[in-house]
Design a protein around this nucleic acid. Structure first.
Lengths: 109, 109
DNA sequence: CCAACTACTTGGCAATGTCAAGTACTAATT
DNA sequence: AATTAGTACTTGACATTGCCAAGTAGTTGG
């Protein structure tokens, strides 16, 4: 998968995932990968950025399967940001789709 | 517009634009901007990259309105690359759309 | 103690969009 | 002919963000 296509979209997918329910980083790597393949080195720095920008709050919870997990919870500001990202993404992807479709007739002709 | 969303997509839009008809850089800035806003500092380096990778060939043509224009013409390899990019873009955007839509019911409830 | 799995962190790097400044040609104005 | 504006191309420095790789650390089982 072209890494460039992912830029920015991952942020939206992470925000939307965490909006559904609080999640921890390692779990998010697998969740997000269902939509776009991604690895730890991408997810953890992204989570840190979003937390620094107050879109997420975190809390630790122990696990019986390993070290404690750092859970992420989306804030009100995070939801607003998510909504604006979603709007931008939908507008962009619709414009791109229309642009690509509008020219399909050229290929057939 | 979130600059990150544009990454990679611009390449596809430029390839598709030039596929329709040979175009020169300055013209492409305006053409591409109909889909996603973009400026010269983005388009010219992108055209150079795509030319270095043999997806474009170029030729000069004089203009009555200013300095000569460098026209870009897409190669066979460029078309193949465009097609693979289009496929990837469509697959990604469909997955993202489905992911976002599938959870709309959460918001309504 | 070691191996394997879970979980988080981080340094260095690659790719690419943006800003800003510069070069150069044509045409219109003074 | 000098100035200004519009067209057209180039490039250096920078910011953002995804990826690889290596490291730290807890739990379970040998």
């Amino acid at each position: 998968m072209n890494a460039q296509f992912k830029k920015g979209v991952l942020e939206l997918i992470v925000l939307e995932s965490v909006r559904q329910r609080d999640m921890y980083g390692y779990e998010l790597v697998e969740e997000v990968s269902k939509v776009v393949n991604v690895n730890e080195g991408t997810i953890y720095p992204l989570l840190k950025r979003l937390t620094n920008e107050h879109y997420f709050e975190t809390y630790l919870r122990e696990s019986t399967e390993g070290p404690p997990r750092k859970y992420y919870h989306v804030t009100a500001a995070g939801i607003l940001y998510r909504d604006s990202l979603e709007k931008e993404w939908m507008e962009l992807s619709e414009r791109v789709w229309k642009f690509l479709k509008q020219n399909i007739s050229d290929e057939g002709g």
